[in-house]
């Protein structure tokens, strides 16, 4: 084989594998449901601000912050994420203090500052899976919530109702005793807060 043909072949293999990688990442983005750390900026801004120092995870007392490898594409490599079913965020707001580059702005650990600045997502109850909606009093999600009666309230038979102030910390999803979980956080990457 000539050297030129060999080099051309190598380049085409490399680019095609990169493209395949990217398309896989795009596909993953739909199915991979993750949260950014509390008070993180909107996704695009977050990615350009984050310098991948890993300090947010290093100060997290709950060890809920993990880091992407390549599973969410090259752009998310080494950025922090939280899988709420594994471990929810306890809203200690230490990651914001530790972040040097403002990707996670510092937010005081007060009720009103957290409600104003943290929009990780919003909890959604699947009534077909939820025990309380099936007549078996449960209420675990309500008890796990750090913002009881602000973010979630319970009605008859401890049926959970998520309010508009839910910040999406994921502790309810972590605590849900149903498999699969009846309450899930739908991430809000644009920080639109609906």
């Amino acid at each position: 084989m000539k050297r030129r043909t060999f080099i051309q072949a190598m380049i085409s293999v490399g680019t095609s594998s990169l493209l395949a990688e990217n398309s896989r990442a795009e596909h993953n983005k739909v199915s991979l449901r993750f949260l950014r750390p509390p008070a993180a900026l909107a996704e695009d801004e977050f990615l350009s601000r984050c310098i991948r120092c890993g300090k947010c995870g290093e100060v997290c007392p709950n060890r809920c912050i993990q880091y992407f490898d390549l599973e969410n594409g090259l752009s998310s490599m080494d950025t922090p994420y939280i899988i709420p079913r594994d471990k929810g965020c306890i809203l200690c707001m230490k990651c914001g203090e530790a972040c040097p580059s403002g990707a996670i702005p510092p937010v005081a650990r007060e009720m009103h500052t957290i409600l104003d600045n943290v929009h990780m997502g919003k909890a959604v109850v699947n009534e077909e899976l939820c025990l309380s909606f099936q007549g078996k009093t449960c209420g675990v999600c309500y008890r796990a919530c750090p913002l009881q009666d602000v973010a979630i309230r319970v009605g008859r038979l401890e049926q959970p109702h998520v309010l508009k102030d839910c910040v999406g910390c994921g502790l309810c999803e972590r605590a849900c005793i149903q498999i699969p979980q009846a309450i899930r956080i739908i991430p809000d990457y644009e920080r639109a807060k609906t």
Binding site: I51, K55, P100
Partner: peptide, 16 residues
């Protein structure tokens, strides 16, 4: 004391 040489917090002072 937290972080790495990329960005560290040393006794309240952030060094990047």
């Amino acid at each position: 004391v937290k972080g790495t040489t990329w960005s560290a917090t040393l006794f309240g002072v952030k060094v990047s």
